Amino acid sequence: MRRGAGPGLGLVALAVLGACSGTPDPEQARTCRRALPTLVPAGARITVLRTAQGPQERSIRIDFAQDRDGRTALPRYAVCEFSGLSRTDLSGLTSDRGAVGGAALYLLKHYYLDTPDAALAEPGAG
């Protein structure tokens, strides 16, 4: 009689799926939220609607609303990717409007994300 995979394999598969869809890392989510103001026009308000694991390993997706006076709120999203160098090393940023290019990403990482201005502009966790 041949033995099948049994319930053990099913439990392992569920555990792997659960690990992929788990709660996003809070520090990665903070870094990603701090990048959001750079994706909207000056004066726009951001409301974070949802934070979740992104489509790639070590990525976060934030769904948010962009609101400007006298205009209908726009649904938007951003996906932040993180390198293996450290938990919070931003290696890519893409929004519903496209990817942030190399030079802009470099400037964002090295001259904005860890500043007091970025901390003040960071939208709430939603």
Results as ranks from 00 to 15, higher is better:
residue 97 R to H: 10
residue 1 M to K: 09
residue 36 L to M: 12
residue 45 R to H: 11
residue 15 A to Q: 01
residue 53 Q to R: 10
residue 11 L to V: 04
residue 80 C to T: 01
residue 90 L to T: 01
residue 22 G to Y: 03
residue 124 G to P: 09
residue 12 V to E: 06
residue 51 T to G: 01
residue 75 P to I: 12
residue 122 E to K: 13
residue 73 A to N: 08
residue 49 L to T: 07
residue 43 G to I: 03
residue 95 S to E: 01
residue 77 Y to R: 11
residue 67 D to A: 13
residue 44 A to P: 04
residue 29 A to R: 00
residue 14 L to S: 10
residue 74 L to V: 06
residue 25 D to C: 04
residue 124 G to H: 01
residue 47 T to V: 13
residue 43 G to D: 02
residue 82 F to G: 03
residue 63 D to Y: 05
residue 89 D to H: 11
residue 79 V to C: 08
residue 101 G to P: 09
residue 10 G to R: 14
residue 66 Q to P: 05
residue 91 S to L: 04
residue 89 D to T: 14
residue 48 V to H: 07
residue 76 R to C: 10
residue 124 G to C: 01
residue 1 M to I: 04
residue 17 L to P: 00
residue 31 T to S: 11
residue 117 D to K: 14
residue 106 Y to M: 07
residue 95 S to K: 04
residue 59 S to F: 03
residue 75 P to N: 14
residue 84 G to T: 12
residue 73 A to P: 15
residue 35 A to H: 02
residue 57 E to S: 10
residue 57 E to F: 06
residue 113 L to G: 03
residue 14 L to V: 13
residue 123 P to F: 05
residue 74 L to Q: 14
residue 84 G to L: 14
residue 19 A to W: 01
residue 96 D to E: 02
residue 37 P to G: 05
residue 80 C to W: 00
residue 78 A to G: 00
residue 18 G to F: 02
residue 100 V to L: 13
residue 112 Y to F: 15
residue 86 S to I: 02
residue 60 I to M: 05
residue 5 A to M: 14
residue 13 A to W: 02
residue 72 T to N: 09
residue 65 A to H: 04
residue 8 G to F: 09
residue 115 T to G: 09
residue 69 D to G: 13
residue 25 D to P: 11
residue 32 C to V: 07
residue 112 Y to V: 11
residue 81 E to H: 13
residue 27 E to F: 08
residue 125 A to F: 05
residue 76 R to Q: 12
residue 65 A to M: 10
residue 119 A to L: 15
residue 21 S to V: 08
